[in-house]
C-alpha cells in the first residue's frame, strides 16, 4: 500500500501526520520525504544517516561545431531550457527536466548529455521505519526530477507513506501520483478550506481515492466540515487543537510517544486507511 499525505495549504501538519502515522503502523514501513525543498520528517525520527547518494539529471551540452542552428531543440523543449532562435543554442541547465528530448530531435547529433547534480537522497532507519529523504541542493529550482528519484527507490511489497510538499503544482503531482490513497491534511480555517478545495480538485483529477484529516480541530470554524459533507469527502480523522501537541512538535517529539493517549487515534487511522486502500497489510 502506498499512502500519500498532501495538503493544499502549507503548515497544516502533513509531516506531523506522516511521522506519527508511520510510527503507529508498528510494522516495517517506508517513509519517503518528498518535500525536497524543505524536508523535515527526519527531525522527528532521530537516526544516523545510513546511506547518502547524490542525484544528478542529464542536461544537454551542445557541440557548436556540429550545430547548424536549425532550432529543432528549442522548439522541442517545453521548459525553455534550450533556446535556439536561429543562432547556436543556449542551454539553461537550471530549467532542464532532463528528458533528453533535445538530443533525440537534433538532426546533426550535436547534443550530448552531461550529468548535473541537483540534490541528495539520505537514508535512515528509525525502529521499523526506513526513511528516505530527498534534499534539493540550494540554488536548484527543479524539484520534480529529484522527487522522481526518491519515488524510484520505493521498495515493492513494503507499505509506504509519502510525505508530499504543500500546494498543488508539479512537485506535488510527482509525489502523489500512483498512490493507493491520498490523505489531505487541512485545518478548519478559511485559509485551510480555500486550499483544501484546490487540493480536492487535484486528487479528483488524478482519480485517486482520498480522504481528509482535520488538524487542530476545535480551532477556527466549521466550514471545512460543511464543505466535506457537501462534497462527499470523508473525514478520516480529527486531531484536536491541543497545545501539548504543539509543544511536543516544537521539541521534535512524536505525538504518539510524547502523548501516548493519542496513539490510538493514529493507530485507528492506520487501520482505516489500510481498509480504505483496499490493499491488505504487508
Amino acid at each position: 500500500m502506498i499512502l500519500a499525505i498532501a495538503s493544499g495549504k502549507g503548515g497544516t501538519g502533513k509531516t506531523t501526520v506522516a511521522v506519527n502515522l508511520a510510527r503507529a503502523f508498528a510494522q516495517k514501513l517506508q517513509l519517503l520525504d518528498c518535500d525536497v525543498e524543505e524536508p523535515n520528517s527526519h527531525l522527528f525520527l532521530p537516526a544516523e544517516i545510513s546511506g547518502e547518494e547524490a542525484v544528478s539529471i542529464l542536461v544537454p551540452e551542445v557541440d557548436e561545431s556540429l550545430c547548424d542552428g536549425c532550432g529543432e531543440c528549442g522548439h522541442f523543449c517545453a521548459y525553455h531550457a534550450i533556446i535556439s532562435t536561429g543562432a547556436k543554442p543556449l542551454v539553461f541547465a537550471e530549467m532542464c527536466h532532463g528528458c533528453g528530448g533535445c538530443m533525440l530531435v537534433c538532426p546533426k547529433k550535436a547534443i550530448r548529455e552531461i550529468p548535473r547534480r541537483i540534490g541528495i537522497i539520505e537514508k535512515r532507519k528509525s525502529g521499523e521505519i526506513v526513511l528516505l529523504t530527498g534534499r534539493l541542493d540550494v540554488g536548484q529550482a527543479m524539484a520534480p526530477p529529484l522527487i522522481r528519484e526518491v519515488r524510484r527507490r520505493l521498495l515493492p511489497g513494503m507499505p509506504a507513506i509519502l510525505d508530499a510538499p504543500p500546494g498543488t503544482s508539479c512537485p506535488v503531482i510527482v509525489s502523489i501520483r500512483g498512490a493507493d490513497f491520498i490523505l489531505l491534511v487541512t485545518e478548519p480555517t478559511p485559509f485551510g478550506l480555500h486550499d483544501l478545495k484546490i487540493a480536492v480538485d487535484m486528487v479528483r483529477e488524478l482519480g485517486i481515492p482520498f480522504g481528509v484529516l482535520v488538524n487542530r480541530a476545535g480551532s477556527g470554524d466549521d466550514r471545512v466540515h460543511g464543505f466535506c459533507r457537501e462534497a462527499h469527502v470523508p473525514i478520516m480523522a480529527e486531531v484536536p487543537d491541543d497545545r501539548r501537541i504543539a509543544e511536543a512538535y516544537s521539541r521534535g517529539q512524536l505525538i504518539v510517544e510524547a502523548l501516548p493517549e493519542y496513539f490510538e487515534l493514529f493507530a485507528g487511522l492506520a487501520e482505516k486507511l489500510l481498509k480504505n486502500s483496499g490493499v491488505d497489510r504487508g
Binding site: G74, Y79, H80, I83, T85, G86, F92, M95
Partner: peptide
C-alpha cells in the same frame, strides 16, 4: 510562469 519568465519572454522577442 513559475520560473524562466525572462528566458521565454526573450525567446518571444527573438521570434
Amino acid at each position: 510562469a513559475a520560473q524562466g519568465a525572462g528566458i521565454q519572454s526573450a525567446e518571444t522577442i527573438a521570434r
